[in-house]
């Protein structure tokens, strides 16, 4: 199979990669860059576990081909932390007990991050609607919603994407 060269900006660094035309963004992140924090829950765009930020928007990395993101800026859960300090969303998810198995968590946090970037003070309804793209089988959503609400208040839109 013929490989194609792409250049992508991931979590602050540029990478030059050779990818197959059929490789999905989630595969490239997980298998080539070893960024396994991004999860795959369905591969069909239905669960949100694979959510990453692409040029400031929340996208499903299982539905995007790697060749489509040539030249783009991508943020994954691994790039959210600021130095040794947890990002306000990460702090809120731990302090609000918004995690159980944690498999949905990176996707939820990245969805919320893009939301807060684009809409600095979302209310509970907006957050709930936004997180409806992310399935969670463990928590019943109540606490993730509260965690995002808390983080949004702390951040006032100050986030990186």
């Amino acid at each position: 199979m013929k490989k194609m060269d792409i250049k992508i900006h991931v979590n602050g660094d540029w990478y030059e990669l050779a990818v197959n035309s059929g490789d999905r963004l989630v595969d490239v992140l997980r298998d080539q860059l070893d960024l396994t924090g991004t999860k795959e829950g369905c591969g069909e765009g239905e669960c949100g576990a694979c959510t990453v930020n692409l040029d400031g928007k929340a996208v499903l990395s299982c539905l995007i081909l790697a060749v489509q993101v040539d030249g783009c800026t991508i943020l994954t859960i691994e790039g959210l932390q600021r130095g040794s300090e947890l990002h306000p969303l990460q702090k809120a998810f731990t302090s609000e007990s918004a995690i159980q198995c944690g498999y949905c968590t990176p996707g939820m946090i990245m969805s919320a991050n893009a939301l807060i970037y684009n809409e600095p003070e979302p209310d509970e309804d907006t957050i709930r609607k936004n997180l409806s793209n992310n399935l969670c089988r463990c928590t019943g959503y109540d606490r993730p919603v509260k965690a995002v609400l808390k983080a949004a208040k702390d951040m006032k839109g100050d986030t990186n994407v």
Binding site: G37, F93, S97, G102
Partner: peptide, 18 residues
């Protein structure tokens, strides 16, 4: 707070799929 919270919010927690 749960002992594995930080691993899980930073994406470093390894699951079988990883």
């Amino acid at each position: 707070e749960r002992i594995d919270g930080v691993e899980k919010v930073t994406g470093s927690a390894k699951y079988a799929t990883d």
